[in-house]
Every structure is written in structure tokens, then in C-alpha cells.
């Protein structure tokens, strides 16, 4: 078996005239946590959605456990989906369902588990992210942003996936809650022995959860390596991003007032 859980080669995707992904090559080793950083509009979300099968790429190859998934039939795709868990940027909780049913959704609707058994699992997962059983009876609209993220994390891990995707997991949270989420991510990924692929522009989050890191810029991966070496990458784009400087090779198209 290959050491790579996810292997992406030459991935391209355009929306109209805008080429968002322009030949992405990315390797995610089995059991590791890889974080992709990049500025807004650099193609991070499109990359993760292509791997998840939510967007069909125009060209290129995506292998999951050595199996090509681009162009796969819908039924086979659903089997591959069973390996995935996903934490969405906006949590994407189902607002018509109570919290416990959100967490148990993949077990009930996706795997046909009985509701009572699924509820037990859901309450266990909620406890694992620090939420009591009383929260299970609330609706998503009654929760704070941080609680919604934790519920979303509980939903992502409820089906015990092999690969967990995190889309901007700490965006919009205060620093303390962001650190709580980061620590929960590390704990959940390690306890499941899962592979994790995250996208973020939060360097604190990267330092907390990443084993490996990569940077995407103008639709390509321009640097990849050990997360600990990101401060000494030797890549001007990465250095500018890490230090958060306005001056550097990455230019924002702004005009003087």
C-alpha cells in the first residue's frame, strides 16, 4: 500500500475565464496532517472541493488510497465519500434538525443506523468536543459560532472517517476559541488515526495542527515541506505570507485613494 493517502497531479479548474487551479500537485501522506495556506481567492477552497468530489475538475488526477476518483461513477463516488469527514468554514449545520441529529446524520441517513443507537454515538461525540447532552436538543441557530464549529467537528468525526477535511476551521472565532478548536482537531485526528487536510490563512492554526504544510498561489502549489520548517522556507512568497507583510512578491491590486 502506498504511503500517500491523497495524491493530486496536474489539477486544473477554471470558472469562465478565471483559471482558479492551474496544475496543482499535492501529496498527503497517510496518517499525517497537512495544512494548505494561501491568500483569499488563491484556490484553496476549490482544491479541497475538487478532492471531496463537490466540484468536477477540468483536468488532472486525484487518487485516494491509490484509486483514481476523477470521472468516477456516482455510486463508486458515494463509497469513497464514506472515507471522508468535513468541517465547513461556515459549519453548514442543518438548521431544521436538532444538534444531536446533525451529529448523527451521517450514521442515520448515510449508514442506516437506528436512530436511538445513532443518538448515543452523537452524544458521545458531542462530549468529546466539550458539549453536554443538553446541547444535543438545541437547534443550530441557538448556538454561538464556537459551539457551531464544535458541533460541526463532532459531525465530521461521528462516522469515524479515514480522511478529515478542515475548511478554515478557526475563521471568525476569537483567539481562545480558535485555540480550543485547534486542540480539538489535533485530539480528534490523533484518536481516530485519520489523515487530515486543512486549508487556512491562520498561521496560529497551522502551527497548532500541521505536520506538513504547503502554500498555494495563483492556482499552483509553490512550496511544500515540514510544517516546522515554514519559517525558514527560503521562498519569498511563503515568507511574505508567514510574516504578514504587505510588501513582497504577492501584490494586491489596490489603487491609491
Amino acid at each position: 500500500m502506498s504511503d500517500l493517502k491523497i495524491k493530486v497531479r496536474g489539477l486544473k479548474k477554471a470558472f469562465g475565464p478565471k483559471q482558479v487551479l492551474n496544475g496543482v500537485d499535492l501529496d498527503v501522506p497517510r496518517g499525517k496532517s497537512l495544512v494548505v495556506i494561501g491568500g483569499s481567492g488563491s484556490g484553496k477552497s476549490v482544491l479541497i472541493k475538487c478532492i471531496l468530489g463537490l466540484i468536477e475538475p477540468d483536468a488532472g488526477s486525484i487518487e485516494i488510497d491509490g484509486q483514481e476518483v476523477v470521472g468516477m461513477k456516482a455510486a463508486e463516488r458515494e463509497d469513497i465519500m464514506r472515507k471522508f469527514g468535513m468541517l465547513f468554514q461556515g459549519s453548514a449545520l442543518f438548521d431544521s434538525l436538532p444538534v444531536w441529529e446533525n451529529v448523527a446524520f451521517g450514521l442515520i441517513a448515510g449508514r442506516g443506523m437506528a436512530r436511538a443507537a445513532a443518538k448515543e454515538v452523537a452524544l458521545r461525540k458531542l462530549a468529546a468536543v466539550g458539549l453536554g447532552p443538553e446541547v444535543g436538543e438545541l437547534y443550530p441557530a441557538e448556538l454561538s459560532g464556537g459551539m457551531q464549529k464544535r458541533v460541526s467537528l463532532a459531525r465530521a468525526i461521528a462516522v469515524e472517517p479515514e480522511i478529515i477535511f478542515f475548511d478554515e476551521p478557526t475563521t471568525g472565532l476569537d483567539p481562545i476559541m480558535a485555540q480550543v478548536i485547534n486542540e480539538l482537531i489535533v485530539k480528534c485526528v490523533q484518536s481516530l488515526g485519520a489523515t487530515a487536510l486543512s486549508i487556512t490563512h491562520d498561521m496560529h492554526s497551522l502551527r497548532a495542527i500541521a505536520d506538513q504544510a504547503a502554500m498555494i498561489y495563483e492556482g499552483r502549489i509553490i512550496w511544500a515541506g515540514d510544517a516546522k520548517t515554514i519559517d525558514h522556507s527560503g521562498n519569498a512568497h511563503v515568507e511574505q505570507f508567514v510574516l504578514g507583510r504587505a510588501e513582497g512578491p504577492i501584490r494586491m491590486p489596490v489603487r491609491p485613494l
Binding site: 463537490l54 465519500m81 468535513m86 468554514q89 453548514a92 451521517g106 441517513a109 448515510g110 449508514r111 462516522v159
Partner: peptide, 10 residues
């Protein structure tokens, strides 16, 4: 993104 979430939950 709730419809995307449905897909990721098989």
C-alpha cells in the same frame, strides 16, 4: 453549503 455537507455525509 448544507447541500455540500449532505454529500460529504454520503
Amino acid at each position: 453549503e448544507q447541500i455540500d455537507a449532505l454529500r460529504t455525509l454520503s
